[in-house]
Computed example of a mutant assay.
Amino acid sequence: MFSFEMSEAELLAMRQTLMQHFRARLEEEAQKAMQQKGLTTTQLEAQMKFDNRTEQLRQMRSSQ
């Protein structure tokens, strides 16, 4: 990624920073989607509990 040597500690710190950045972006996108669909966190969590993933995805896609 860079043209200079980095210690393991520096690499770990960089990875953690990148992970925090992408987590924040993901959370922002999730909040936007929830607002657009008018969902609360409780409703979203209820939708995430299922036994058959394939059937759940089919239902979610058909309701869009």
Rank of each mutant, 00 (worst) to 15 (best):
M1L: 11
F2Q: 09
S3Y: 00
S3N: 13
S3L: 04
S3A: 09
S3T: 03
E5G: 01
E5V: 00
S7A: 10
S7W: 06
S7N: 12
E8M: 06
E8R: 08
A9Q: 08
E10Q: 03
L11E: 00
L12A: 11
L12Y: 02
A13K: 03
M14Q: 13
M14W: 10
R15N: 09
R15F: 05
Q16E: 07
Q16S: 12
T17W: 10
L18S: 10
M19Y: 15
M19F: 15
M19G: 05
H21Y: 06
F22P: 01
F22E: 14
R23K: 15
R23S: 14
R25Q: 14
E27I: 02
E28Y: 07
E28N: 11
E29V: 04
A30K: 06
A30V: 07
Q31C: 07
K32L: 09
K32G: 04
A33G: 08
A33D: 10
M34L: 09
Q35D: 14
Q35T: 08
K37T: 03
K37H: 13
K37W: 06
G38E: 06
G38M: 04
L39V: 02
L39Y: 10
T40P: 00
T40Y: 14
L44D: 10
L44R: 12
L44S: 14
E45V: 01
E45Q: 14
A46F: 07
M48F: 10
F50A: 06
D51E: 11
D51M: 03
R53G: 04
R53L: 10
T54P: 00
T54Y: 05
E55P: 00
E55W: 01
E55Y: 03
Q56G: 00
Q56K: 06
Q56I: 01
L57T: 07
R58V: 03
Q59S: 09
Q59T: 09
R61A: 12
S62N: 11
S62T: 07
S62E: 12
S62F: 09
S63H: 10
